[in-house]
């Protein structure tokens, strides 16, 4: 995977603009001084919404959504594990649905709304209810799978507010935890769902 990284360093600079709520990493600010997308040879501007903020990135045809999130946008909460859709560490939401960012062509993100782990919390950095439940239930060990797990769980609860254990396991089947903390992870999702129900559906 090293060729990708060196390639990224020598790649034309991206232009990132952020309006509305900014990506919380501050990546937009870091990247905003670089050359405009249109002038970069071999790249195409991708305009999309990332965590509620509009962004524009110059992407090459070979870039994956994962590459533009972690690279020019600096959203390194999205992890690269296997790079082949097996482990789910790179799970992000595209228009609300979980996808593997390592299998999603960057150019196909154009016009879509992407949510990464950085976009789940509140404006002052408060954790989302699912994130809080993961912390409280001991569902995080090394943490590498956690962003993907939490996004997959967040998508599940949006569709099924009261999931069975079977539904929880089915929803997380595309996410591997090499620390094997699955029991606590399922408990965390169950706890987040229960808390959401008692809170009257508020997030």
């Amino acid at each position: 995977m090293t060729p990708r990284k060196t390639g990224r360093r020598s790649a034309p600079g991206p232009r990132v603009s952020a309006r509305g709520r900014r990506p919380e990493s501050g990546a937009a600010a870091r990247a905003s001084g670089s050359r405009p997308a249109a002038s970069a040879p071999g790249t195409t501007p991708v305009r999309f919404v990332v965590n509620g903020a509009e962004a524009e990135v110059a992407a090459r045809p070979s870039d994956r959504l994962l590459d533009i999130l972690r690279g020019p946008l600096g959203l390194t909460g999205t992890k690269e594990g296997c790079g082949a859709g097996e482990c789910g560490a790179c799970t992000v939401l595209v228009d609300g649905r979980p996808v593997n960012a390592c299998l999603f062509p960057a150019l196909e993100a154009d016009g879509r709304a992407v949510t990464t782990i950085e976009g789940l919390g509140g404006p002052a950095g408060e954790l989302s209810d699912v994130q809080r439940a993961f912390v409280e239930c001991g569902a995080i060990q090394c943490g590498f799978c956690s962003p993907g797990m939490i996004l997959a769980a967040t998508a599940l609860l949006a569709e099924h507010p009261d999931p069975t254990d079977g539904q929880i396991r089915d929803a997380l089947v595309g996410n591997l935890c090499r620390c094997t903390g699955y029991v606590q992870i399922v408990e965390a999702v169950r706890a987040a769902a229960a808390r959401r129900r008692t809170a009257g559906g508020a997030r």
Binding site: G85, G88, T91, V94, R97, P98, V99, N100, L103, F104, A152, A155, D170, A171, V173, G174, N175
Partner: peptide, 9 residues
């Protein structure tokens, strides 16, 4: 088939 992430795409 595969995983939810892959079935979405």
């Amino acid at each position: 088939m595969a995983s939810p992430q892959i079935r979405n795409v």
